[in-house]
Design a protein around this nucleic acid. Structure first.
Lengths: 221, 221
DNA sequence: CGATAATTTGATTTTTCTCAAGACGCGTGG
DNA sequence: CCACGCGTCTTGAGAAAAATCAAATTATCG
């Protein structure tokens, strides 16, 4: 698989839910591949606000962006197993095996593309951010059929999208009321009706369509 | 210099102000190094809204994120000269000269770090976005002493920060009224007082301090 | 099945957007 | 070098979106 390192390099470690895997300002000498579980990167502002840089699932690699030291911490959202690989090892490997260099570049470029779309998403409305988030989870996260697992808390989602937890909650319930999703407790949602069985990439586009409809009570404008 | 390609590869082209250098959905077979001038990447939404993905100045490289096709267009903000290099050429070069591969990875990782901070910036308030933007221009853009050139329009800035042109204008003037900057016409600002002669990295931190002061008229709360 | 933490919901305030003029800077030509 | 015109930017008032504060409700875990 593109995106995973050889099983012969690095060390494997486990972290319990809520544990810190990387601390902000840690020297950036390693990259991390998730074997199982979910991780998010975070940054705390001095005034106490928290920001989430991204969510990473089984198979994802994080820590690629840091040159000298990490600007974001990483914490386990669920119990997690990660393979930790020294960059030094990768550099050495890259000399003998050219594919390693290409793989690393490809991983980094892909991460760059994801961050680019996140930046674009964040300059849109709250509802569009939630829709984009759901689409991202549908294609990248943990989904079985039309059920999308949301292992992170609403607070994590809010901190990722630059919204408050209340706004996330309200918009999620708005989407449910309008028939786009069904909320399954705190940790999952289900895509409904027209959205089921669609390729995830189409989702964001499809969702777009519902945003102007106003069936607040029963009557359309 | 790290971040620039050899003068012996690629072709150099010139583009007049406002010209499109890369079109959205163009095949992503090349990367672009700016020799002179300023470029921005843009994306149009179907409803007519415009988003700016980033500003690129002399020495910067853009087009690194695209795997198959570009998801953003690129347009010349000023008259521009760019060196255009085929990725294929770079791959070939990487085989004989390992430094090329490392350089490309480093450029991509740096771009990733910048996009990461942009994403974090976009989840903050309008004033914080402007302050972050100014800090970015101070360290990355075109500045002579304390004068920071802003070759882009207010609309470009607004589309970059996910704000309206009116909000950009209001906040800029707010910062001026509070003594942080001086607006020099449409295309430059000057850092003032305590902000002059600071390392650009400190700027964002320094600016932070002013945001709570309220010398609206003459009186402090 | 109950305790506890997370989420939802409501009322209100603040921030940002929208729409509409008006002012100003920049490049041009006299 | 200055006046002119046009496009860009600024400013104001009202509307909409999202944040804040407070309280009620509901999952999840033991």
């Amino acid at each position: 698989m593109f995106g995973s390192f050889s099983e012969r390099i690095g060390v494997v470690r486990s972290y319990a839910r809520k544990r810190e895997i990387v601390r902000e300002d840690d020297p950036a000498t390693r990259v991390y591949e998730i074997i199982s579980g979910t991780v998010c990167t975070t940054k705390m502002l001095r005034d106490g606000r928290r920001q989430v840089g991204g969510f990473y699932f089984s198979g994802d690699v994080f820590g690629l962006e840091a040159a000298v030291k990490h600007s974001l911490a990483a914490q386990a959202i669920t119990d997690v197993r990660v393979r930790i690989v020294k960059k030094q090892t990768l550099s050495a490997l890259a000399l003998s095996d050219c594919k390693v260099a290409g793989r690393l570049l490809s991983l980094t470029a892909r991460e760059l593309a994801r961050k680019q779309s996140l930046a674009l998403l964040l300059s849109r409305t709250a509802q569009e951010r939630l829709i984009g988030f759901i689409a991202e989870m549908a294609q990248h996260g943990i989904s079985k059929g039309d059920r999308i697992a949301l292992p992170m808390t609403r607070q994590d989602i809010a901190d990722y999208l630059g919204l408050t937890i209340e706004t996330v909650s309200r918009i999620l319930h708005d989407l449910e009321r309008r028939g786009a999703i069904k909320i399954k407790g705190y940790n999952a949602i289900v895509l409904r009706g027209q959205f089921v069985e669609r390729g995830a990439e189409e989702l964001a586009d499809l969702f777009e369509g519902i945003k102007d409809r106003q069936p607040k009570t029963k009557q359309a404008a």
